[in-house]
Design a protein around this nucleic acid. Structure first.
Ligand SMILES: [Zn+2]
Ligand SMILES: [Zn+2]
Ligand SMILES: [Zn+2]
Ligand SMILES: [Zn+2]
Lengths: 140, 140
DNA sequence: TCGGACAATGTTATGATATAACATTTAAAA
DNA sequence: TTTTAAATGTTATATCATAACATTGTCCGA
C-alpha cells in the first residue's frame, strides 16, 4: 500500500511545507485550507494545483491520508504503515483519530472475497464525538 | 439510522424520478450524471439543486447511499436497513456491490469505544475488481 | 371547507473542490 | 556531459455542492 521505505529527507520544499502544515494543524485540512496558511504562502505556493501535487506525493508515501467524507487531508498519526487504517471523525470539533485495523481488515476483505471481489484498498470512516466533545455534551 | 418505515408510495415526483434513475443505472451516478439523463429532463428537473434535494430525502429514507470516494449515489441493494453497509467499488467497470456488516460493525465501533469515541455512523468503502473484471484480467 | 403549518419545488447565483494543458526548472542517472 | 524523469509554475477550466428567496403543493385540525 504505502511506500514505507520513503526517506522523509528527500521530500521537496513544497512537500515539506505541506506536511509541516498538516502536522501543525493536528486535524484534517482541505487543500484550500492549506493554501490559505501564511507559512504556505511564504513558501511561494499560490495555486491549488501546487498543493494537490504535494498532497498526492505525501499520500503515496503514506505520510498523509485523505478523509473522503471531508474532502480533507490529515497527517498520519502512526508513521507509514502497510495495513488499513480507520478514522474516527468528531462532528463537533472536526478532529480525527486514526486507528489501526489489522484484525478488522481481514474480516472486511473476507466479506469481499466471499463475493469474488479482489480487494486493493479498504477505507473506514466513522463519525461521532471524540472523548473531549462527548464529555462536554454530557455535562451541560 | 435509516427511516425504515418509510412508505415508497409517498415519494414525490422528483424523488421517484431520481430513485428510478439510480435503480435503472445499476451503478453509482453523480448528481450531474442524474441531471443529464433524458428521463430526468423530461420530468422537468433542470437544476443541480433539484437533484441534490431529492437525493437528500432518498438517503434519509435509506433508499439510496452516498459513495464518498466517488462523490456518487447508488440505489440501496438491500432495501432499507438499520445497520452499516460496506461498498465494494470496482475500479475497472465502476459498479459497486453492497455488503452487510452487522458483525464487523460491532468490531469497528468497539475499536472506537476503546478510544472513548461515541460512534454515530460507520462507513466502509473497498476498492478492487469485481468478479467479472477480475475474471477478464486473469484471462488476457 | 377553510386556513395554518410545513415540506417540496423553482430559479438564479455562487461557493468549494479538483484537474487539464503546456512551458520551464530541477534533480537524478547514465 | 547528456539524457531522463520528477517536480514546479501558470492559467484556465472542470466538477461537485449549497445559499437565498419566492412560490407551490400537501396535510391535518378547526
Ligand atoms: Zn496512517
Ligand atoms: Zn471533538
Ligand atoms: Zn443499503
Ligand atoms: Zn468490474
Amino acid at each position: 500500500m504505502a511506500d514505507v521505505d520513503a526517506d522523509p529527507k528527500k521530500l521537496t520544499r513544497n512537500q515539506q511545507a505541506v506536511l509541516a502544515a498538516l502536522k501543525g494543524a493536528g486535524r484534517p485540512l482541505t487543500a484550500y485550507d492549506v493554501l490559505g496558511l501564511p507559512a504556505i504562502r511564504k513558501a511561494g505556493m499560490k495555486a491549488p494545483l501546487t498543493i494537490y501535487r504535494a498532497l498526492d506525493k505525501l499520500i503515496a508515501l503514506g505520510l498523509v491520508h485523505r478523509i473522503e467524507s471531508l474532502n480533507a487531508f490529515v497527517h498520519c498519526g502512526h508513521g507509514p504503515h502497510d495495513h488499513a487504517a480507520g478514522f474516527l471523525i468528531c462532528t463537533d470539533c472536526g478532529r480525527t483519530l486514526e486507528v489501526h485495523l489489522e484484525s478488522c481488515e481481514n474480516h472486511l476483505a473476507g466479506r469481499a472475497r466471499d463475493q469474488g471481489f479482489a480487494v486493493d484498498d479498504v477505507r473506514v470512516e466513522m463519525t461521532g464525538r471524540c472523548p473531549d466533545c462527548a464529555g462536554r455534551a454530557a455535562v451541560p
